[in-house]
């Protein structure tokens, strides 16, 4: 079980969090003209990298904030956690 540092609350057990997928995906802007392919890439296509991965987590049983986690998908090492507005 991972130990995740919520940037708002501090260290907490994984039990308090929900995984939210790839944290590098940006939603296309509203009313943007966009091809089928681009849209499908946004909706469906995700990489499953081995190694470093920036992902979203939701402190669902805590402060209910979404934030980002840089994690190694093979070792589960967490390099850092940060607020969504912070640069990555």
């Amino acid at each position: 079980m991972l130990n995740i540092k919520c940037p708002y609350c501090g260290d907490r057990s994984q039990k308090e969090f929900a995984y939210g997928g790839d944290g590098t995906i940006t939603r296309p802007k509203l009313n943007q003209e966009i091809s089928d392919e681009e849209w499908d890439n946004f909706v469906y296509l995700r990489k499953s990298p081995r190694g470093k991965h920036i992902e979203l987590w939701h402190h669902i049983a805590g402060c209910r904030q979404w934030f980002k986690v840089e994690r190694d998908t093979t070792t589960h090492e967490i390099f850092r956690t940060f607020k969504p507005e912070e640069e990555f």
Binding site: G20, H58, R64, Q65, P84
Partner: peptide
């Protein structure tokens, strides 16, 4: 639904 709303407010349209 609550998680969904929070996601859009915090991540997509802050």
């Amino acid at each position: 639904v609550l998680s969904h709303l929070e996601y859009y407010l915090q991540i997509v349209w802050p």
